[in-house]
């Protein structure tokens, strides 16, 4: 009976969809972190994560072990993202809201071109310390493999860490305060500028985890590997509400499962379109997203 459930087609789709969904949620979480901190939608999130994943993962060519390479990616992700904030985003606060969008689009173009110049467009396949062959139940495959279990676990672990950091530590309180009420925080002696940089750094590190996890997918590590994921992550973040980390995770998983079901039962080309239609419908009904309570905006 249990075996039947484990190898059932729909249950398999839900499990596989969840594995992709938490990764979408992870990308969405990066966008939410940056948005909450600085009201900038980071259009270069995908390429930034891709770039630092390359820097870390190519260390495996120099006999570094997978975990060391992943750790390098995350550390470089943190530094790179914080530097990006200091050098090119900081001059744009209090300017028209399209300015940071355009700058991050420039970053997008630049990073993908540099990555393609340095590492070529041929995908690389970092060897994961986990098998991608699905678990078997009485001779039939189930929806999960050791690899996808690791991907889900890593994504959920990072999300939990971020949640603990923001909700239960004094640093998290300061981070939230400087994002939501920068003037008041400044008066209370919080160094808002530094905390905003830190917020970007954290988002960059989370992005690097997403990059490493995605580079283990069949598509491998390629300069445009996060383009599709970024769109889905944005859709998840927008549906959940750009202010809500939990919304990002939940809508990420929903999108992952829905797309997996469409892939399996309909046509894989339709999956992206259905996600866009979902986005348009949600934005028409609730422009502020499903998980956000207020609809006020900064003028």
């Amino acid at each position: 009976m249990i075996a039947n459930i484990l190898t059932n087609r729909i249950v398999n789709d839900i499990a596989g969809g969840t594995a992709q969904g938490v990764i979408i949620g992870l990308v969405a979480l990066c966008l939410v972190l940056v948005w909450r901190a600085t009201r900038v939608l980071n259009f270069a999130q995908g390429p930034m994560a891709m770039f630092v994943t390359y820097i870390g993962m190519t260390q495996m060519d120099h006999h570094a072990n997978f975990w060391v390479a992943a750790a390098i990616s995350v550390a470089v992700g943190f530094i790179f993202s914080a530097l990006t904030e200091i050098v090119i985003v900081k001059p744009l606060y209090h300017k028209a809201e399209i300015n940071p969008i355009v700058v991050m689009v420039g970053m997008f173009t630049l990073l993908e071109a540099v990555a393609s110049a340095v590492w070529t467009n041929i995908p690389r396949y970092p060897t994961a310390p986990f098998s991608s062959i699905n678990f078997q139940s009485e001779g039939n495959p189930t929806g999960l493999s050791p690899l996808s279990t690791f991907q889900i676990g890593a994504a959920l672990a990072i999300m939990t860490l971020v949640a603990i950091l923001f909700n239960y530590t004094s640093l998290g309180l300061k981070l939230r305060a400087s994002a939501l009420a920068p003037e008041v925080s400044k008066l209370l002696g919080i160094r808002v500028g530094r905390l905003l940089t830190l917020g970007w750094g954290i988002a960059g590190a989370v992005g690097a985890v997403a990059g490493v996890v995605i580079s283990l997918n069949p598509g491998g590590l390629a300069p445009n590997m996060l383009d599709a994921m970024f769109i889905l992550g944005f859709i998840a973040a927008a549906i959940g509400g750009l202010d809500s980390p939990l919304g990002a995770l939940v809508s990420g998983i929903v999108i992952g499962v829905v797309m997996q079901l469409i892939n399996d039962y309909w046509n894989s080309n339709y999956a992206d379109m259905v996600a866009v239609v979902l986005l348009v419908v949600v934005l028409m009904l609730r422009p502020q997203g499903i998980f956000t309570k207020n609809s006020t905006r900064r003028v």
Binding site: I101, A238, L283
Partner: peptide, 25 residues
């Protein structure tokens, strides 16, 4: 129509998603 109710970043993201998905039609 949804665009009229959206602010900059949402709008930019939504139109980008539209452009990415449309060639599949």
């Amino acid at each position: 129509m949804p665009a009229t109710r959206l602010r900059g970043p949402y709008l930019a993201g939504m139109t980008l998603a539209f452009a990415v998905a449309l060639p599949y039609v």
